[in-house]
Design a protein around this nucleic acid. Structure first.
Length: 495
RNA sequence: GGUACCAUGGCCGAGCGGCUAGGCAUGGGUCUGCAAAACCUAGUACAGCGGUUCGAAUCCGCUUGGUACCUCCA
């Protein structure tokens, strides 16, 4: 019996704004698609929040025993700098500016993205398809949409006919808009546009002679529109209707709206059962954005080399910081907030170490079973990680109370607690402790050396040679190593 | 201008009709050669103004402030 059979998972569906009991299309299996990055620059921390949120969701679904096929694309073509006809493909533009091949741009930033995701301990998706790898499929679906009467050709480009589509379907249902309002309130029209209506969007763009990224098509050389790749790749790998589609909140309109339109225009039915949107990470109260300079790169955070934070933070601390907020809430990133998260995180990892050496009793005065069920209840309620974290701190308190002899626990319960803590901390929240992050082996030599130093200092202290013992402590502190004199001896921690 | 969303104690951040969220910081205490760390413990907040209700941070209305989308954005 799998866990999902006795856990009622509820997911907030952006389509109707309600938490719904999750039911997969195929028993025990889930298809999940998440819009990936456009690889024309380094991913910043805001981009990462979305992928970390969905990594947590992926992890919990797997934990519940589902077989999840998680598809996350790499956009390596077709993402225009703007929606006007003179709009340039972002990757082409970068390649032109740096005088390199577009695929060099793609390769460089794809590698960067993977590196960062690995640092954040995010699982790779099951399939990571690229737009350029699916040009043939995109051309095919355009033909289908044209055949179904929802697209038209103009000067070698193909546009989706939103007005026509809206007569038979509702364009705007995900983002709560309707076409009439949008047309009435749209900003100045691009007068020179080939579109018959400003709300229409490109499925295929004709390539100008100097455009490097181009593919042959029935309509001449060109490149695909941005929205199309997700429709094509999700339906190819997950089917015409699949369980979960995720992405950043900012993709809700127009990107996801267009995906729905394309799916319905091509296949005649809705492509997705549950739409999930991760909210934005802000910096100084403003959305992170590369173009405005209001963004921070993960590497700048890990090294401390940035203008916003007073010190460096490890990937797990950053991840933990994100997990302390709900994925649907806007989260503001600040020095004070991450500093507070780091302290809490350390307290959590220390307690987990302590958990492994707790005294065993014949009876338990703590209720591990109910603790565990509260953890599951939190996650089952639309992946409420902040509540889960609060429960984890409840367990921290439990561990200390037992350690202090004010509560007791049986071997069975302790095993249960330990299994639970490890599952939620490592497997589901995807956190790691400091040793794991640095690879563990690095600390071995240091451990030996520190043991020697601590022994020498213990001898000095036993001889009441305070000047020596304080000199050791102070100079180590200056070197970034803090000594902690506990009841059971001295331990150390590296900043 | 249009459409959403949000305003919670010093800070971050859950809750969304009745019960202490949690973390950080702060005060008090235990421990300690001193210090740090660790642990224990204290604090009762929901933008403003009306309304609904036996009861509202939680529902409704208005006001004020903020953010996002409507161009590219995770």
């Amino acid at each position: 019996m799998s866990l999902y059979q006795n856990n009622e998972l509820r997911i907030y569906n952006s389509m109707n704004g309600e938490k719904e009991v999750f039911q997969s299309i195929t028993e025990g299996r889930i298809g999940m698609y998440v819009c990936g990055p456009t690889v024309y620059s380094n991913v910043h921390l805001g981009n990462c929040r979305t992928f970390i949120s969905f990594d947590m969701i992926f992890r919990y679904l797997k934990h519940l025993g589902y077989k999840v096929r998680y598809v996350r694309n790499i956009t390596d073509a077709g993402h225009l700098t703007d929606d006007a006809d003179q709009g340039e493909d972002k990757i082409s533009k970068k390649a032109r500016l740096e005088k390199i091949e577009p695929m060099e741009v793609v390769q460089q930033y794809t590698i960067d993205f993977h590196t960062v995701m690995k640092q954040f301990n995010a699982f790779p998706p099951s399939i990571e398809p690229t737009a350029t790898g699916h040009i043939v499929e995109q051309i095919e679906i355009i033909k289908t949409i044209i055949d179904n009467g929802y697209a038209y050709e103009k000067n070698g480009s193909i546009y989706f006919d939103v007005v026509k589509f809206n007569k038979d379907h509702h364009y705007g249902k995900l983002s709560g808009r309707n076409l009439e309002d949008m047309m009435a309130n749209s900003r100045e029209l691009a007068a020179q546009s080939d579109k018959s209506n400003p709300a229409d969007f490109a499925l295929w763009k004709k390539a100008s002679p100097e455009h490097i990224m181009r593919w042959p098509s029935p309509w001449g050389d060109g490149f695909p529109g941005w929205h199309l790749e997700c429709t094509v790749m999700s339906s190819k790998y997950l089917g015409e209707t699949f369980d979960i589609h995720g992405g950043g909140m900012d993709l809700k309109f127009p990107h996801h709206e267009c995906e729905i339109a394309q799916g319905e225009a091509a296949h005649g039915h809705s492509p997705v059962n549950y739409w999930m949107h991760a909210n934005m990470l802000t910096l100084n109260g403003q959305k992170m954005s590369k173009s405005t300079g209001n963004s921070i790169l993960p590497v700048e955070l890990f090294t401390g080399d940035n203008d916003f934070m007073q010190k460096a933070f490890s990937p797990s601390v950053v991840r933990f910081f994100m997990m302390q907020a709900h994925y649907r809430s806007i989260l503001d990133f600040s020095n004070d907030a991450i500093l507070a998260a780091e302290k809490g995180f350390n307290r959590l990892t220390e307690a987990m170490k302590l958990m492994n050496q707790l005294p065993i009793s014949k009876t338990s005065s703590v209720d591990v079973a109910s603790w565990k069920s509260k953890c599951y209840a939190a996650m089952n309620d639309d992946f409420n990680t902040p509540i889960l974290v609060a429960e984890l701190f409840d367990a921290v308190k439990m561990i200390h109370t037992i350690n202090d002899g004010n509560a007791t626990i049986t071997k069975e319960d302790l095993d249960d607690l330990s299994t639970g803590m490890n599952a939620f901390f490592y497997d589901i929240l995807g956190l790691q402790n400091a040793q794991e992050e640095t690879g563990g082996s690095l600390n071995k030599g240091l451990d030996g050396a520190m043991k020697l130093i601590i022994d020498l200092r213990a001898t000095a202290r036993a001889n009441k040679d305070w000047s020596t013992s304080d000199k050791i402590r102070d100079e180590l502190a200056a070197a970034g190593i803090a000594l902690k004199d506990g009841v059971d001896g001295t331990s150390y921690s590296v900043e």
